[in-house]
Amino acid sequence: MALDALTEVSDEALLILYGNGDRQAAQSLTLRLGPLAFRVAYRMLGDRAEAEDLAQEAMLRLWKIAPDWRTGEAKVSTWLYRVVTNLATDRLRRRRGVGLDEAPEMADESASALDQMISADRIAALQGALDQLPARQRQAVILRHLEGLSNPEIAAAMEIGVEAVESLTARGKRALAALLEGRRDELGYGHD
């Protein structure tokens, strides 16, 4: 598997290679973008199995659109962020009515033992709070603060203006802070 040969190739070039029937491009794109799709889906939904299912669906859409991909219009990763977060938002809308007690717990199977010891509680607390945000705020906060996208990139992914992104992230952070306020002592932040 000479996947190293494709490490310098852009996502877009790989997608075009894939569309032309290149099998190796499919593997490289999967290794690059599959984890991204899963990570964002998981943070949106808080459930591992559902996140894998959704990320697979998003990747399938990518494979299908490859032959019609218009070069230079959008980054492949931005397109994928958009598809994953939109699919997740749809599922969250269908899931309305889930009570706070039923909010999915953070499944930490993938984290190392050390990470689990040090920060599992904090990560679980953050995920629990994210799960309670309205879908659009959750989407903006995840893309900004966990995926590290710039505001213009988020605007492109969410198909809204930069000012709307700023508003959503600010409101999302305020809501998260309020949700976590009562747990600061428990999480070791009580004596800053």
Partner: peptide
């Protein structure tokens, strides 16, 4: 500070998909 710290912790422990998913 609390939020920034939680975001940083979450970024460090990014969830990984299973090999079956890939």
């Amino acid at each position: 500070h609390t939020l920034d710290d939680l975001f940083a912790a979450a970024r460090r422990a990014a969830p990984e998909p299973s090999p079956g998913f890939l």
